[in-house]
Design a protein around this nucleic acid. Structure first.
Lengths: 195, 195
DNA sequence: GCGAGAAACTTGTCAATGTCAAGATTCGGT
DNA sequence: ACCGAATCTTGACATTGACAAGTTTCTCGC
């Protein structure tokens, strides 16, 4: 069984996981289908059979990402009723799966009409926002409150992954998220004012 | 009379502006140096003389972006003392210059050792955060408050540009920013804070 | 006003990439 | 065992980023 078989066996999964690894290590710009094929040990045209093209591969990765995000979110909701924990889980997911996170929010790289992508995204959104907030979706104040929470953790995750945060932010994203999110919906120290 | 001269005259600026246009229209993935050269009417190797390579071109675009962000921020600070206006200016900049914004926070695409880039980024940061907040940088609460504001507007801008926001968010980013940012530093539903 | 050197731009070339087409090998059901 | 289908390979082509070397224009000292 050590001889490389004609059929890889699980090429689709191997390519997806290798794609995530390459993006994390070298960035999405240096991602090459032929290089991926080389790493996995198949010919340069093999990926095309599982994913139509590069866009298809990234779309599949994004679908996997939304599934993972839904799982992270559901797990956090089980552990606690606090909505804050869902936000922490959002950042935790982004840091644990940076390649997935990067691809999920780049429509230009994806096949946005893909049925799996649409379904996975919708499912992730349903897991993220509590049922109550969805029922009160018409309420403008409730909507902007949800958007504020989303924007805060999304921005924090993006800035963290880009290495844009100052040194004082520390080295634990989870702790940072709790500290930063405390300023939402809660009276805290007065806002920084211009001198 | 309009015979193309050997020297373009302002090739560097023309390439930068065309780069921004292409990114806005087709996404950064489809950006090609040769295509840019074709659009501007020069040979395929001309860009290399102004920008070492593709990374150099994008780095120059990021520098331009940080300069623009600094200008937006300074203008907002002149109009009002309210720190909220700086956040609104942040989103306004991102929506007005989406290509610049996209490139500025992608270290994988840039030459992060570039002196101009480092200087422009630092200057933009100085314009964004009020002097008072910087002096009190050691204060943890003040730091997280600033990060909360930054993360909120950054995340909101990113989600807006990605088209990730729900329909209920409206079509005016500035109005949305004010509505969403109102949940920061404002007493609302009490929330247990740990940090 | 002129000549040398630098700057701006061109042409030519090369390896690498994404994608398509066509052939080879293996799998699965009957 | 057999046949269609799924999986993978080889081959080919246009396009790209980057490099090298040549050509045209500008600049500046004299």
């Amino acid at each position: 069984m050590t001889r490389a078989p004609y059929h890889h066996g699980d090429l689709r999964r191997a390519l997806l996981s290798e794609t995530a690894k390459v993006i994390e290590e070298s960035g999405i710009a240096h991602l090459s289908l032929r290089d991926l094929a080389r790493r996995v040990g198949v010919s340069h045209a093999a990926p095309a059979h599982h994913f139509r093209d590069k866009t298809g591969l990234l779309t599949a990765l994004a679908v996997e990402g939304f599934d993972l995000l839904a799982a992270f979110s559901a797990a956090a909701r089980e552990d606690s009723d606090d909505f804050l924990e869902v936000g922490v889980a959002y950042v935790r997911f982004a840091v644990a799966h940076p390649a997935h996170f990067e691809v999920m929010f780049r429509p230009g790289l994806l096949d946005n009409d893909d049925a799996d992508l649409i379904a996975a995204r919708q499912m992730a959104r349903a897991r993220l926002f509590p049922p109550a907030a969805q029922a009160a979706g018409e309420d403008s104040a409730s909507l902007t409150a949800g958007l504020a929470a989303w924007a805060l953790v999304h921005g924090l995750a993006a800035l963290w992954l880009n290495g844009a945060l100052p040194d004082g932010a520390g080295d634990d994203p989870e702790t940072l998220t709790r500290a930063v999110a405390a300023h939402l919906f809660a009276r805290s120290n007065p806002q920084p004012s211009s001198g």
